[in-house]
Write a protein that binds this DNA or RNA. Structure first.
Length: 263
DNA sequence: ATGGTTGAATATCAA
């Protein structure tokens, strides 16, 4: 058995202390981070190493984006893809010794206006998802886990108000359609919803709310998927809501799952 | 309809 967590950390250097707190309190075998906002060489890898996470596979750039996989189980670098040719550090993959591949993704947020004719970023988001679909169609994943900030809340109960968010980027029908097409192409199973089929499970709350907890205007943007061949091994999903209340928090909280597979 | 906050890098851009 092993456990895996995904967390958009919104600066791995500013929040290195929150990362070590999570490693200490939750001790996932693997932690996938997004929005590290750091070149790889400036990620505090030694700190994580000293906390028992001796392996790291990462991609980074100055100021924006950035993804990292920390692990206390041995992992090897399994490459990356530049979906939609944006030149951004938004994907990295690692492989466990048991042959399981971990994909860590940070899908573009997509800007404010959900119309690719007037908002370049929205088009890039859709293109990114289309290329994910095509890649999974060309090479159907097996013994694979895909996690990350997918920046889309696909279901009605993945947002605080389906009606209010239908025209808000992250919950528009065209985005949901693109996300589900990528999921279907890879025969990916949403492990969080396999475990917890109904009800709100928000993983993100805006910084712009006076009281995130009381108003609870959240969205489920962070996901854990598994390829169909290993989906039955996934269980014990959790969304760590209290982390949003930690000192100087990220606007996202970790999502966790366990897999009953030999390591 | 609007504005609200945060981080990186240092004037804005991205989220």
């Amino acid at each position: 058995m092993f456990t895996i967590a995904t967390w958009n950390i919104n600066s791995v250097r500013l929040r290195a202390g929150l990362v070590t707190r999570l490693l200490s309190e939750e001790a996932p075998d693997i932690l996938c981070l997004q929005e590290c906002k750091s070149p790889v060489e400036k990620i505090p890898a030694q700190l994580f190493h000293d906390a028992g996470y001796r392996w790291m596979v990462a991609r980074g750039q100055r100021g924006y984006n950035g993804v990292a996989i920390l692990s206390r189980l041995p992992i090897s670098d399994a490459g990356d893809r530049d979906y939609a040719r944006l030149g951004h550090a938004r994907h990295v993959a690692a492989r466990l010794e048991n042959g399981v591949t971990i994909h860590n993704l940070y899908v573009p947020a997509g800007g404010d206006i959900p119309d690719r004719e007037v908002n370049l970023k929205f088009g890039q988001k859709l293109d990114f998802l289309t290329e994910m679909r095509d890649a999974f169609h060309a090479d159907r994943p097996s013994r694979s886990i895909l996690v990350g900030d997918l920046n889309i809340a696909p279901r009605e109960d993945d947002v605080w108000s389906h009606k209010a968010l239908l025209k808000v980027v992250s919950h528009t029908p065209v985005e949901v359609e693109h996300l589900l097409a990528a999921q279907d192409a890879g025969h990916w199973v949403d492990i969080t919803r396999q475990d917890i089929p109904e009800g709100p499970l928000f993983s993100w709350w805006s910084y712009r709310n006076r009281d995130w907890d009381a108003s609870d205007r959240g969205r489920r943007l962070d996901h854990i998927w598994a390829s169909a061949d290993i989906a039955a091994a996934g269980h014990a999903s959790r969304v760590l809501r209290p982390v949003r209340g930690w000192e100087q928090p990220s606007d996202h909280v970790p999502v966790v799952a366990a897999f009953d597979l030999d390591v």
